[in-house]
Design a protein around this nucleic acid. Structure first.
Length: 687
RNA sequence: GCUGCUGUAGCUCAGCGGUAGAGCACUUCAUUGGUAAUGAAGAGGUCGUGGGUUCAAUUCCCAUCAGCAGCUCCA
């Protein structure tokens, strides 16, 4: 009699010895088919593993649609890849090799760097290793012995990891496969043959333990699936996602241009993109008026003193364009033979007058607040501006619209009393929600960014930070949506509530943000007169529902896959003449629609209708208005809808009414459902 | 900034030690057609930039600028 207990607690009994596969088959045909391997008493075993007569075991049957199974297989594949690299290259030091949402990587320190030319060799070696079919054997060793093993293998990173990351573990596990031994928590698959299909993807630099002051390693990215079909599908998904990339669509649809000669990360908005941006600005502006904001304008530069008071200078010097120095100072310094080093010292000491391109709008808005005496009766003061800021992002971080050096925030600063704080915060969050709802974006996540208490890059009194973080947490709770709290994600002056979305390849971008700030009011000595006739300190809220126009539109392009809803579409429709015979009538229709306030163009080329429709499709037009002799005769247009296709002929007035209603409602009829194949987050089976 | 890759016509890309090619787009002509590509002809490039090697460089080497992926960073 053999007794098998399954994960749900149920017990199955068999007359004699039984294989894992037979147990699976006894449960169901589907399970037997999907089964990849079993776990007998938590040890992975192949399907043909026999549970002997008389044994009593726990059994889990692992199937190919189990995410954990896929991750286990991928991690085993990472071991195979590391083994292949060690066979090909000498002096390989192993770091970490975890799995990610879509694959896995392994970090190496190499004497000779790897290049993509090595991929073929590595893949061939991996295939050989898999062919050998050597099992992954678990070895457990006491701490001291484990240290010795890693030291003997000259694996310095593993030694360090045992000493630091695993300082509390008494027993450590290794996995051995042939000559390859790696410190690893496991688990692993019972046989390397279960690695169905794998592919090396890319090579990148990565810092040891993510610290840029430590060694830079080479990271090999790869992925693996149980079947070739799944791998092919995955690679195809990546290709599809690339077509949705806002940089590709931005070029194709003529939305924006970034020019080498203008500068890295400096966006030129072409007419169509500028139109989308203006529509969005108008949209948010209408809500600002309703919520009692006042609009202001401020210049793009300000004196160094302003930023010394705010704390931007010199602490954030690295993220700013260099200061613009007063002409008189420059000629004086030049005649004195002043060196660059002396120059920056003099700037920090305040001996040189100069200006800074503004990295933020807050100091300017603060100065508007403090330009007059404020009473508690005036509060809250809400100052809004589409404010363009400039930040010296490192060259390797810049890309497309999502990370740029000059961008426009839909910024506002609210100056409030303690009593008003939670109501005003709620109003700000409401605005962010309005934005996401209007765009049909529901897959965003919320993050409360707190300071990292161990870092010195934050200004202000820890007590104020506690207050501000508590206010953020309470405000986030009112959203009725789960949120994460992350240390080290705060602005330098205060904590924030951020709204984060994924782009087409799975990268996360912060869009809307609401920040609570007790510090800048203090630094600028802001006050208002309270009912007690004494001066009080206001609290500041910084907020931007879009975040920045650039990043928001970048993400929006991918969200719609370029197919903007009617109210946002730069070209809402195009009149297509069936032949030149109908051109005159078609032009009349075009004028009629334009007069009705619609953004319409005409295509009167001597192309066939099919070609014009194709071009209109490629331009992602919401509507095409097809006009031929039949329409001219009946006073109709034949409407082709981007979503539903041919709607047939209708009177011109009916078409106009339809479009106007759709614009009025800001209807979102199509969004791209984002299940990006992305890089994603990594799991924790990393050593 | 770091690691790896890339830079050829407006766009997407091929090519390669002996000073360039395709498709699409563009221009012209013919065609006058009812829901995803009509045909033909033409025009268009100092092969990112600056050095070097060579009899000869778009091709090889170095530097630089820009782009891509990742890391780090992101007020």
């Amino acid at each position: 009699m053999t007794s098998v207990q399954l994960p749900d607690g149920s017990v199955k009994e068999f007359e004699s010895s039984v294989t894992v596969k037979e147990v699976a088959a006894s449960i169901g045909r589907g399970l037997a088919k999907a089964a990849m391997w079993g776990e007998v008493d938590n040890q992975p075993v192949p399907l043909d593993h026999t549970i002997e007569d008389g044994q009593k075991v726990d059994l889990k049957i692992v199937t190919n649609n189990d995410n954990a199974a896929l991750a286990t297989m991928r991690h085993s594949c990472a071991h195979v890849m590391a083994r292949a690299v060690m066979r090909i290259k000498k002096g390989v030091q192993l770091a970490f090799g975890p799995t990610t949402d879509s694959g896995f990587y392994y970090d190496f320190m190499l004497e000779q760097p790897l290049t993509e030319d090595d991929f073929k060799k590595i893949e061939a070696e991996m295939a050989k290793i898999i062919e050998l079919d050597e099992p992954f054997e678990r070895i457990e060793e006491p701490r001291e012995r484990a240290l010795q093993i890693c030291a003997d293998m000259k694996q310095d990173f593993k030694v360090e990891h045992i000493n630091e990351g695993l300082a509390d573990d008494e027993t450590l596990s290794f996995y051995q496969q042939g000559e390859f031994v790696d410190l690893c928590r496991g688990p692993h698959i019972p046989s390397p043959k279960m690695i169905g299909a794998f592919k090396m993807l890319s090579i990148a630099g990565a810092y040891w333990k993510g610290d840029q002051d430590r060694q830079q390693l080479q990271r090999l990215y790869a992925t693996a699936f149980f079947t070739q079909e799944e791998l092919d599908q995955h690679l195809e998904n990546i290709e599809e996602a690339k077509k949705r990339d806002h940089r590709v669509l931005g070029k194709k649809l003529g939305l924006f241009h970034i020019d080498e000669m203008v500068g890295q990360g400096l966006v030129l908005w072409t007419p169509k993109g500028a139109f989308v941006r203006q529509q969005l600005q108008d949209f948010i502006l209408s809500h600002l008026r309703r919520q009692g904001y006042d609009q202001v304008f401020t210049p793009h530069i300000g004196k160094l003193d302003l930023y010394k008071t705010s704390g931007h200078f010199p602490y954030y010097q690295e993220s700013q364009y260099p200061a613009i120095i007063d002409r008189d100072h420059i000629s004086k310094l030049a005649s004195e033979g002043c060196t660059c080093g002396e120059l920056s010292n003099k700037m920090e000491a305040g001996e040189i007058e100069g200006y800074l391109l503004k990295p933020m709008n807050c100091p300017h808005h603060i100065k508007i607040y403090s330009s007059q005496q404020r009473s508690y009766r005036d509060l809250p003061v809400r100052l809004a501006e589409f404010g363009t800021v400039y930040r010296w992002e490192k060259s390797g971080e810049i890309g497309g619209l999502t990370r740029v050096r000059g961008f426009t925030q839909d910024d506002a600063h609210l100056f409030v009393t303690q009593e008003q704080l939670s109501t005003e915060l709620a109003g700000c969050l409401e605005l962010v929600k309005i934005v996401f709802k209007a765009m049909g974006m529901d897959s965003y996540s919320v993050r409360v960014g707190k300071r990292d208490p161990s870092s010195d890059k934050y200004v202000g009194d820890p007590k104020n930070w506690e207050l501000a973080e508590q206010a953020c947490r309470e405000a986030a709770e009112t959203l009725g949506k789960p949120f994460v709290e992350e240390e080290g994600e705060a602005a330098f002056y205060g904590p924030k509530i951020d709204f984060v979305v994924n782009d087409c390849i799975g990268r996360k971008w912060q869009l809307g943000t609401v920040q609570v700030d007790y510090n800048l009011p203090e630094r600028f000595d802001l006050s208002y007169i309270g009912p007690d006739n004494k001066a009080h300190r206001p609290i500041m809220i910084h907020r931007a529902p879009f975040g920045s126009m650039e990043r928001f539109i970048g993400v929006l392009i991918e969200h719609f896959a370029g197919a903007f809803p009617l109210w946002l579409a730069p070209e809402q429709g195009r009149v297509l003449s069936v032949s030149e015979k109908s051109e005159e009538y078609a032009r009349k229709i075009e004028q009629q629609l334009i007069s009705a306030g619609l953004r319409i163009t005409g295509d009167y080329r001597s192309e066939k209708l099919g070609a014009k429709i194709r071009d209109g499709r490629l331009d992602m037009l919401p509507y095409m208005l097809i006009v031929g002799p039949r329409d001219a005769e009946n006073g109709t247009v034949s409407v082709r809808d981007r979503v539903e296709g041919d709607l047939g002929a209708m009177p011109v007035a009916q078409a106009i009414a339809r479009f106007q209603k759709e614009v009025e409602q800001k209807a979102v009829r199509q969004v791209f459902k984002n299940d990006s194949p992305g890089s994603g987050s990594e799991t924790k089976n990393e050593y």
